[in-house]
Structures are given as structure tokens and as C-alpha cells.
Design a protein around this nucleic acid. Structure first.
Lengths: 374, 374
DNA sequence: TTGAAAGCGCTAACAC
DNA sequence: GTGTTAGCGCTTTCAA
């Protein structure tokens, strides 16, 4: 144990092989019911002896249901009984089995969280809020990542539902029809977050991406910029970024202006794509004096491009992002952007998903940060 | 439904209240067994009718175990039977109950992941790797966040174990004694990640933080720097950052040099703390010509300080970080740092945790990125 | 205040 | 190839 192996010693085989092997071993055991049961235990070295509630009950000299009541501090029991039980639990190192508990009570303490990505910090931010609230209430979050793919999301939702979660928190309002149907029929409470521009299933918690885009445009217009460009990532996948762009364009239109050029990258947002995207946009269209980015990661990339190429910000070029990331806040020039309530969305969503309240939409709003880049 | 409510309509009460309320309603129902059962269903609007395996079996006109076999593509069944079952599943919208399945088979498809934080992108990076591997193998990850607090970690581990996970992935090698004992007695496979400098419980997957610190120092020394400073976050909480600092100091010592000054922030790492920390360090000790940061977030903050104050990097001051974050890679001057294998750690850890292999330590190594700041 | 009994919905062994 | 049977480890009822 703990003998340092090197990377080379790692087989890069199929992840399932081990499970398959187990199963194979497994099915070799024959004999009487009892013998078979016993073999099962020994067939996997690592199969825990698993102290059960009943073992605790025996040790404490009480009934199983009494132990159950004591452990959940529910119903009544004498102090003496409680002490005996607690002592037995300690002695045996008993850890309750939530799987059995959940099955018996039909009330799970698992909440599913389905997000498109873990690469963009906004989703971990959401998770932080969710986790904080859930943890305080004794719930655990099971996470699923969809990579912005609706069919993967559908699969994810289906397998999440198989765990009979207490609730489901999902980023976005757009899902496949089947996903929507499963969700509705499941009887599980659903909270859709990050977007309120559309029709939700149950609870909807977030902000209007359309309004974010609109507000961004109005701000830039009010600052006197007139030649607008856009640098964004794949808006066919990230529908919310697409809605922001729509809002942005609509507001420009309303002001009698328009987007002069846009650079759309077919990949996820990143600092790199933002930097390169801006470079391409400017090469193509040097007259642009203000650029709207699909988010702060992209915008920071753009800012880096300006720093590296001595482009005066905001005099020669204004930059505007979305999200209000920490890194953007402490740049030499704080990025002009809109702060979105990711953590609060997580907290709010987690709280609602555990309630019995009627469905509703909660607009958490957003905040414009003037910054120094526009 | 979907009537836009405003934020104000949200009570900011205790998260448990709803659950408590449910329970209260719950216990009010009395009567015969059947009546009670029925009340249960109606007491919570949202209690699903829950189609069962048996319902599918009836609909398909076959036995329950046959349905089970078909659904898990295990054992044998005729094509005709399969078609009947599949049809019934479709018709009824059946979603298997993993809770029951897990209890019956005593083989869970849940893997616990215990990390100190979600604020620092390195942990989501780990999660990405874990999730990718687990997802491909049909497993789900349950996450727990400890906020770098050993006693919270202990609690987290305990409640994770209650779900009888297929395995547990934990960041770091340092745990409370009770946590370690629980882990060992649980019979669950454990993978400790992010650190190999110490004694592990079962699998250990990561890199040597001591070596990272040492390598960083050697690099800076080889570049000709002689007056070293350190800007870091709370190393009493983040033990791995502490180990890097130790390695750094040891290597300086070995070169006949030493750290001239250090700025330790008592908070989590952030761009802000890095920026302010460097400002304080330089104010106190202007002679320093190279600064080692506890990680890239801090280092980027330091870099921003230099940009904002026209401090020539690396001529006047060299900067060195740790992790190799994307944002650092595309800064005007790419940050000099060490890339750590977060994603790979996640993949490797997840793969190992599902195996039957004997315990071992896997050193995934790290990579020095020369960058342009040192 | 307590224990016996009946499930929760599924899997696995085994006989047919 | 398929159905019957016996649990998995709990919670909840109900009678004592």
C-alpha cells in the first residue's frame, strides 16, 4: 500500500471492465440460498460487513423501530433507552443506510442539479448556492452535466429521476419534449434557473437575459458609442447568450442604431476565444468603437488583446461583458459588465425546490457595473 | 403558474420550515392502514403515482423478474418478450427506481466527491474529470463541500457514507481521526486526490505539492532572481498551498538563499487578495525581485497590480503562480506557473474508485510553464 | 414508551 | 426463457 506507482502503471482500459468482472465472479457461485448469500459477501473483498439497524437494536436490547425513532429523534423514547441506543451505535460504528431509509419512507434527501457545463465558473457559483442551502437542510446534491446538448440533458434528467430525488434544479428553460413530459409526470418539483424569458415547468428562478442585453446596449449608447461589434461563443448551444444578443440588438434598433459586425465562435466561451475573436473582429472592421461580449470570460480575453496591442480602452475601444466575475472586477481597469445573481439563484432555487409552494417565476434581477472599460 | 412574482415575494425564512411543515401535515393523518396510506398520497400534492416494475409486468403480461432482466439487458429473454416489455414501459412512462434497485442489489451507482471549495476553479476542473468518467460508466456523483474545515469534512464523509456509495473521492490526505476510521471501516473504496505528500487510506492520485514548490524555486533561481517574496492565502486551511511553500523555501535554502518576506492573507485565495497582497508586500519590501504566489488566482491579482502601477514584469519584478489556469495563459504576458493535472486527476480517480485493484499511489506529475512573467 | 409486522420497489436464486 | 420466492435495511403503523 502506498508504494508510489508511476503513471505508466495505469491501464487505460474501459471503465466498466471492473464491474463486469465482479459480475462474472458473482455468477459463478452456486449452492443453497444460504451458501450463495455467503459467497456473495466473500466474492468481493471490499464488501462491508455493514452494521445494520437490527444489529444496533440487538446490542442495545431494544426493538428495531425504537432505534429508528431514537436516531431520527422522532416519536418518543425514554432517556435511558436513548443512551443505550447511542452507546450501541458508537460501539458498533453504525452508519445508517439512507438507501433503505429512503425506500421505506419514500422521501429522498437527494436533489438533482443539471447544468450545461463546469468549465464556466457561473455554474459552480450556482452550485455553491444550491449546496449551501441543501446542506443546511440535510440534503445532498447529485450533479449532472449536459455539455449544452439537449439530448444529453434528456438522458441526464431521466437517470436523475430514477433516483427519485426530492427535487430537480435545471439550468435553462429549453428542453426536449420528452424531457419536459418526464419532468411533468414525475411529480418531482422542478426549478429552472438562469433564465426567465420563456415558459417554465414549475418554478423559474433567474433573470431576463433579454433585459441584460437591452440594458447593456442602452448603457453603451448612453455613453456615446455608435459603432457596435459583438464577440460571442456558440449561441446555438448557449441559448441564454443568444437571448442577450437579441436584447442587445433590439435596444440598438430602438435607438436607431445597429450592430455593425459580429464574430461568432463555434466553441465554448473562453478567454482565448475572446481574445482571438476580438482580434479578428477589429482586423475586419477597425471602425468599431464598442464591443459587446457574450460573457466576461470572452470580454477579459478581449481586454487582454487590447492590453497586448496597446489599444486604448475605452477611448479607442469600449468593452462590455456579462456576469461580473471576480477576475474582471480587479483588472487594472475593472470591466464594465452586468453582475448576475448566480449564488442567489442557487440558494433560492434550492429553497423553493423543497417547498410546497405553488409554482411561480422569481426574477432576481441583475446589476450593471459601470467599470472602466466603457 | 408562471405569473412573474418579484423578489420581494420571497420569504427569507429558514430552509427547513417547509420540510417541517410537510412532516407536520403528515402526522395529522390517522386511520386504518389503507386510509393512512391513501392520505399520505394526497397530503403532498406532488406525490407521484410512481409506476412500478410490477405495473409494467402486469401490462406486459409477464413476471416482474422478466421485466427486470429485460431492462438491465441481463440474463435471457425472447425478443417477443422484450418487445412487450419495452412497449409497456413506453405506454406507462416507467422510470426505474434506483433506490430500490440499489437496496436489492447492494451495489450503488453513486460516488461521493468531497472537495473543500467550489470557488476555486481547480475543484470544478476535478469534477469535470470525475463526471466524465463516471457518466460514461453509468454512475452519478454526489458532491460535498467542506470549506476547508476538517470537522465539516468529517460530517460530510459520514453523511456520504450513509448513501452507501460505490466509492468516495476526497481532496487531500489530511482528515480527522474519526473520518479516517469511518473511511477504513466502511469498506468503500477511497481515492484521495490533489496531493501525494503523505500517507493515504486507499488510492492516492495527484502530484507532489512539495515538488511543485521546489521546482518553482529552482526555476526562479535559475533565472537569476535573488530576492524572493511570497504572497499567499490561508495555509492553515489550504494545507497543499502550505506544502508548496515549504518546498519553495527548502529549495531556496538548498541554493543558499531564503525568502525575504511573505504576505499571508487569512482568507481564501482570490484575484483581489493577490492584488492587494502584492501591493502590501512591495510597500514593505521594495527590494524584492521575484514573488511566488500560492496559486494563479493570487498571481493574476499580482499581475494586475503590476499592470496598474506600471511595474515592469519581469524586469523589475518576476511573478510565479501555480495551476495553469486558462485566464493566466492568455494574459498579455502569459503567467509563469506550473500546470497541475486537475482534469486527469478526476478521470483517474473516478476510474480507480470503481476498480478492484489493490491500493496504490499514482503520481500524475505536473508541468512547468515558462510563461513571460519570470 | 415500545415492539411486531407489513411493506417500500426492486434484484437474484432457483425451480420449472 | 420465465415466474416464484425471498430478501435488501429501513420506516411506519398499530396494538400492547
Amino acid at each position: 500500500m502506498n508504494v508510489p506507482d508511476l503513471v505508466g502503471s495505469l491501464a487505460c482500459g474501459d471503465n466498466r471492465s471492473a464491474a463486469a468482472l465482479n459480475l462474472a465472479n458473482w455468477r459463478r457461485f452456486e449452492g443453497t440460498n444460504l451458501a450463495a448469500r455467503r459467497s456473495r459477501k466473500s466474492s468481493r473483498k471490499r464488501d462491508k460487513p455493514s452494521v445494520t439497524l437490527e444489529a444496533v437494536a440487538r446490542k442495545a436490547g431494544v426493538g428495531a423501530s425504537t432505534v429508528s425513532r431514537v436516531l431520527r429523534k422522532q416519536g418518543s423514547f425514554s432517556p435511558r433507552t436513548r443512551d443505550k441506543v447511542v452507546a450501541a451505535v458508537e460501539k458498533l460504528g453504525y452508519v445508517p443506510n439512507n438507501i433503505a431509509g429512503t425506500l421505506a419512507s419514500t422521501r429522498s434527501q437527494l436533489v438533482g442539479v443539471v447544468i450545461p457545463s463546469l468549465t464556466n465558473i457561473v455554474f459552480p457559483d450556482l452550485l455553491r448556492g444550491v449546496h449551501k442551502t441543501l446542506d443546511a437542510a440535510g440534503y445532498k446534491s447529485v450533479i449532472g452535466v449536459t455539455e449544452y446538448d439537449p439530448s444529453q440533458e434528456e438522458l441526464m434528467i431521466e437517470s436523475m429521476l430514477a433516483w427519485r430525488p426530492a427535487g430537480l434544479i435545471i439550468a435553462g428553460l429549453e428542453h426536449t419534449n420528452r424531457a419536459r413530459t418526464m419532468l411533468k409526470n414525475s411529480g418531482v418539483r422542478v426549478v429552472e434557473v438562469f433564465d426567465i424569458d420563456g415558459k417554465g415547468i414549475d418554478f423559474v428562478v433567474g433573470f431576463s437575459n433579454l433585459a441584460v442585453g437591452r440594458t447593456s446596449a442602452q448603457f453603451l449608447v448612453s455613453r456615446g458609442y455608435r459603432h457596435f461589434g459583438y464577440v460571442g461563443h456558440n449561441i446555438e448551444m448557449d441559448l441564454r447568450a443568444g437571448k442577450r444578443l437579441s436584447g442587445f440588438k433590439l435596444a440598438l434598433q430602438a435607438a436607431g442604431l445597429s450592430l455593425q459586425d459580429q464574430e461568432l465562435v463555434a466553441r465554448p466561451s473562453s478567454v482565448e476565444e475572446g481574445r482571438n475573436g476580438l482580434a479578428r473582429l477589429l482586423a475586419r472592421n477597425p471602425a468599431i468603437d464598442a464591443v459587446y461580449f457574450s460573457n466576461d470570460d470572452m470580454a477579459i480575453g478581449g481586454y487582454f488583446h487590447c492590453l497586448a496591442n496597446a489599444i486604448a480602452v475605452p477611448d479607442r475601444l469600449a468593452l462590455f461583458g456579462c456576469n461580473g466575475l471576480e477576475v474582471a472586477r480587479f483588472a487594472p481597469q475593472p470591466l464594465s459588465t452586468i453582475r448576475t445573481p448566480r449564488f442567489l439563484m442557487g440558494e433560492t432555487g434550492a429553497r423553493l425546490v423543497l417547498t410546497d409552494e405553488p409554482s411561480k417565476v422569481v426574477d432576481l434581477g441583475f446589476e450593471l457595473i459601470e467599470g472602466a472599460t466603457a
